[in-house]
Amino acid sequence: MNIKLKEIDKDTLKVGDVVGVAREVSYRWKSSFRHKMIYPAKITRITPKRTKFFTDKFGEHDKREVFYECDNEAARETFLAKTFRDIQDGIFELTELKRNDCIGKISDEDLPEVAEHMKAITEILKKYKEK
């Protein structure tokens, strides 16, 4: 999927504008996912020389910060980053269940549904294991 985020020219920004601020989704030591979370933030202050920008959510940004338009492309980027984070959280929960020996406590009513979902997940992941 090819997503093109539109950068905003900082010279055109003014106080009150809403911009997208990108933040990485990390998953290992010094590793991050290829898609970023784009958070909408409102510009609250700009220094006279336009070297620093301040937003309501993140505070101070330096001149190297890239701001993006909050459009459909940014929404798709954020959606993919969120789904990756959900996968990460699910893997963590499974690991905790196994580590705490709670996986054997799954009720008989839930067991068929859990097995069905787990089978679907492993089928998808098999194609990445072979690479």
Rank of each mutant, 00 (worst) to 15 (best):
I3P: 04
K4P: 00
L5F: 03
D9T: 04
K10R: 15
D11C: 04
L13H: 03
V15G: 05
D17Q: 02
V18L: 06
V19Y: 07
G20T: 05
R23F: 05
Y27I: 04
K30H: 14
K30T: 09
S31I: 01
S32N: 13
I38S: 00
Y39S: 13
Y39W: 12
P40R: 03
P40E: 10
A41F: 08
K42D: 01
K42E: 14
K42F: 01
R45F: 11
R45V: 01
T47K: 05
R50N: 05
F54Q: 06
F54K: 05
D56T: 07
G59S: 06
G59E: 03
H61K: 01
H61A: 03
D62W: 11
D62I: 01
R64L: 09
E65K: 14
V66P: 00
V66G: 00
Y68N: 01
D71H: 04
E73I: 00
A75H: 05
R76H: 10
E77F: 01
E77S: 12
T78W: 02
F79N: 10
L80M: 14
Q88V: 03
D89I: 10
G90F: 11
G90D: 07
G90S: 13
G90M: 11
I91N: 13
F92R: 15
T95D: 11
T95W: 13
E96P: 00
L97K: 06
L97V: 02
K98N: 13
R99Q: 11
R99M: 12
R99F: 13
D101K: 15
C102A: 15
I103E: 12
I103K: 07
I103R: 02
I106D: 11
S107N: 11
E109H: 10
E109Y: 13
L111A: 12
L111G: 06
E113C: 00
E113I: 05
E113R: 08
E113M: 06
V114H: 04
V114R: 07
A115E: 13
K119N: 08
I121S: 10
I124L: 15
K126G: 13
K127Q: 15
K127A: 12
K129T: 13
K129D: 13
E130V: 14
K131D: 10
K131F: 10
